[in-house]
Amino acid sequence: MAVPNGGLAFPNVHMSRVIGLMEILNDNLGSIELSKVSKDYLLDLDELLPVVDSAELLGFVKADQGILKLTSEGALFISMNPRNKKAYLQKKMMALELFRKAVEIVNSAGGCIPRRAFLVELAKRYPLASSELVDWIIYYGRLSLLLRYDSQLEMIWVMSKQ
């Protein structure tokens, strides 16, 4: 399902779908038509396109005129074991401007900030920021072990890098 981030450069699908796409590419020798993926796996474009976008943002896939290609980074990534995947993901996240800014915000609040305040600060720099964007930041933050979140208290922490 397409989650409009208002054009903000941040992935908005779960990692397992990105990896799923990458594995399909891998099975197909690194290149496949988007329409074929849609047909073979019974996924409509509404569902696929956000996955492609997110995969591109992370540098794992390249889309060019309807043809998807697995980048060398992507090929490397899916061959890694879980530990290395995490480390790689951390690098990738910090390379995204939006995520860097997000970490900055939490740090300048003393390493820990309530979710609502976080959104307010984020919106100052990115007026189109929404609560959904915060959800994805938290998700990828947790995934890359860079952020911690408690849903009961609604608090975001920065984790020390591992």
């Binding site: 933050g141 947790r142 995934l143």
Partner: peptide, 21 residues
Amino acid sequence: IQEVGLEGFEEATPKELSGGM
């Protein structure tokens, strides 16, 4: 939890997780 790739989500509740997770 690490083995299945959910490291970082230990304190999350099912409500916050996707189907795959």
